[in-house]
Amino acid sequence: MWKRLNLGKVFVYALLIVIALSMLLPFVRVVSLSISSRVPVERNYVKFLPKEITMDSYRHVMAEKRIWQSMGVTIFVTVFGTILSIVVTSLMAYAVSRKEFKPRRGVMIFVLLTMVFQAPVIPFFLTVKSLRLLNTVWALILPLVVNAFNLVIMRSFFEETPEALIDSGRIDGCGDARLLFAIVLPTAKPVLATISLFYAVSYWNIFYNALMFIYDQALQPLQIIVRSYVETSVETPGVYLDVNYNNTTLQMATIIVATLPILLVYPFLQKYFTAGVMVGAVKE
């Protein structure tokens, strides 16, 4: 009996380890390629471990003007967008979480309907165009300000705030704005952290909207630049002969630059978004 049990366990763990490795090894390879020298990369000596370690690819990437520009755009869009999203979403979520707000049901239906009836891309594109947002950073920010799903999660968390806390606040003479910022938000830190991450990732990874709305090279976000390496990936022999990098190592270095912020922030926030947050969403 115990032997069969262990066999099953071995199988489960082996499978999980294979899956996890399939997710980790590509990153190991990206890092290794980005810090290897050109010659071993071209001779295909680099599999998962770096050869002839050099930081030249990073030096070159960081010296490129378009990388700095797009980095600036992406950071601005992410920071400003996330703040705006959190403010707008939490204001709205608070209102619809209060029982004394009469149209709360109507407002929620109004929001949830947009999840069922999604507008086609072209009218969306034309709307952004007629708002004169085309080719501005606002075209990357404003269309993503509120996510209905995030709003629903936030609302169900706000509803958990003990009514006694709200009442004591009211007795102290707090208005709704004070209640939200002094009582509800501080008790909802985990959900704030999670939703901020969700928003930040959606701004950081913005791609299709940039493809549609931005023509200027100087306004392109990082993801478009990452993609542009694939399009120019036909290796021209002799171009990189006197340097320590080539198109592949530069591409990998750019990928690292474009993912590092997420890789740094995400593990610290992970503890918040397991069961609790998602259960709130599924309840709907």
């Binding site: 204001l91 009218p123 034309l126």
Partner: peptide, 20 residues
């Protein structure tokens, strides 16, 4: 408090829907 959010849904969800 709901005003900015409502504005968002009208502008970027309902207007394109009508624009269909």
């Amino acid at each position: 408090m709901t005003l900015p959010g409502m504005l968002y849904f009208i502008l970027f969800k309902y207007v394109p829907l009508l624009g269909s």
